[in-house]
Amino acid sequence: MIQMHAFYIFLIAAGLLIAAFLYVALSTRNAREINMQSAYGLRKLLFFVVLAVLVLGIGMTLGKTPYPKANELPGKVVFVVGKQFSFALSDTPITNDQDYEARTYGIPVQVPAGSLTEFRVMSFDVNHSFAVYSPDDHLLAQTQAMPGYVNRLRVRFDQPGRYYVLCLELCGMGHHRMRGVFDVN
């Protein structure tokens, strides 16, 4: 899971930094003059190491963005509207408050497993965040729901089950109870 990988990288890098600070702090017990040329040499090495790590990181990750790609086509479209304080999901466009009310309380949209689904997400009022949680409660995917824009989020669901949607952008007093739902089968 990508969250755990990121966490391990964080722990390793933070651990190295803490170790360096601890080492330096303990070194003050034996005070002595340091060779500035060696220090500059070490800094130069650090520069290249950090640069290499960053360039590697950029190279490995910059191509893997969640934005819609031209070379892939979804098999299904789901229309989503966020509004204080619920998400409405539908197979057909939600164009007004009546559609929104009907779809907020309607039967959950059915999404086929294994195929790429495109969520077209917008908002009728303020910024929300359409965040899809898997049946085992991991954050799978998200995009912002904004008035005036349609964000297209494409996700492939391999695991059948009931998926809940939470709002991850503070949108008012009901922010924590804002939900949506759909089924994958």
Binding site: I2, Q3, A6, T61, L62, K64, T65, P66, S129, A131, L139, L140, A141, Q142, L168, E169
Partner: peptide, 9 residues
């Protein structure tokens, strides 16, 4: 970006 997709907010 790829990580932010899972960590944002």
């Amino acid at each position: 970006v790829e990580v932010n997709f899972h960590f944002h907010n």
